[in-house]
Design a protein around this nucleic acid. Structure first.
Lengths: 152, 152
DNA sequence: TATTGTTATACTCTATAACTATA
DNA sequence: TATAGTTATAGAGTATAACAATA
């Protein structure tokens, strides 16, 4: 079966695809952890740094919702990043309960480091192991899967 | 860009794709955890049960290599599964150091439960949110990504 | 009352180190 | 010597519960 044959799926095919997606999530996560040995930041921390770099400053609750964890869990991650000098807090302009989290200069350097170490093997594999059509298939699928994850 | 336009990728596009794949791994993992609230087995345990169901009995070391964890970590997961009565050990026919791990009847029932709860939302989303062509793209991409993960 | 965030506590996952038993 | 597996210990990630401050 390739991307060019569009058959309506049987329930069994759907279940098998779902199972493979679940398995892939675990495999990717552990493969990424292997690529992060000796790194300065953990995977969860890297995810937050990367998000702040792409989307700009955000509050604890916003980051928690975006990363699908509880605010308390995000609070722990942010405390570690703040201790390491990678993010800083500034008071929210109008709501004194909130604090805006933003990257420090060192935090931005770490984002670059994450791109090199953690994501480097993926970029290399995409370049060396796939042809142009396959890469296009992967790129489109990643967008589709990201959309499915975001549904409630 | 769709799967039907096959352009050679620029380094920036490769980096962006790699970043999205890393982010997707984390999002999928946490979305799967949400779908597992109240489940009898954890995500790592479910992965092992599913693998035993698909591939048949295996040793601790084989399971550790397949799941990309250390044998000690797999040992802890297997001990929990054995305590719960979901797997059992039998002596290896020729090598007394090894033990073959296999599913119990209750373990097989749990595999079905995992399919319903953990993978059910994925199957539903694939069916309801994607058209036939998009599903084919996702199915092919999952196979390609699984191949990339397995490369050393 | 609702929201933002913190502190305290516990469980899971995984790792490293040190060990035993068997090949 | 090398391999399969166990035990002990620790760090990271996440959760729930209870709380304080602000809206």
């Amino acid at each position: 079966m390739t991307a060019h044959e569009h058959q309506p799926p049987s329930p069994d095919e759907l279940r098998e695809a779902a199972s493979k997606i679940r398995a892939l999530a675990g495999q990717l996560t552990r493969r990424l952890r292997e690529a992060s040995e000796g790194a300065d930041v953990t995977m969860s921390q890297a995810a937050v740094l990367s998000r702040l770099d792409r989307r700009g400053p955000a509050t604890t609750v916003e980051l928690a919702r975006a990363e699908r964890v509880r605010p308390q869990s995000m609070g722990a991650t942010l405390a570690a990043l703040e201790d390491a000098g990678l993010v800083e807090r500034s008071p929210h302009p109008t709501d004194r309960r909130q604090a805006l989290i933003s990257l420090t200069a060192e935090g931005r350097r770490q984002v670059e480091e994450v791109r090199r170490t953690r994501e480097g093997w993926i970029a290399k594999a995409l370049r060396e192991e796939l042809d142009d059509r396959e890469r296009a298939v992967v790129v489109e699928a990643v967008g589709l899967l990201a959309r499915l994850v975001e549904e409630e």
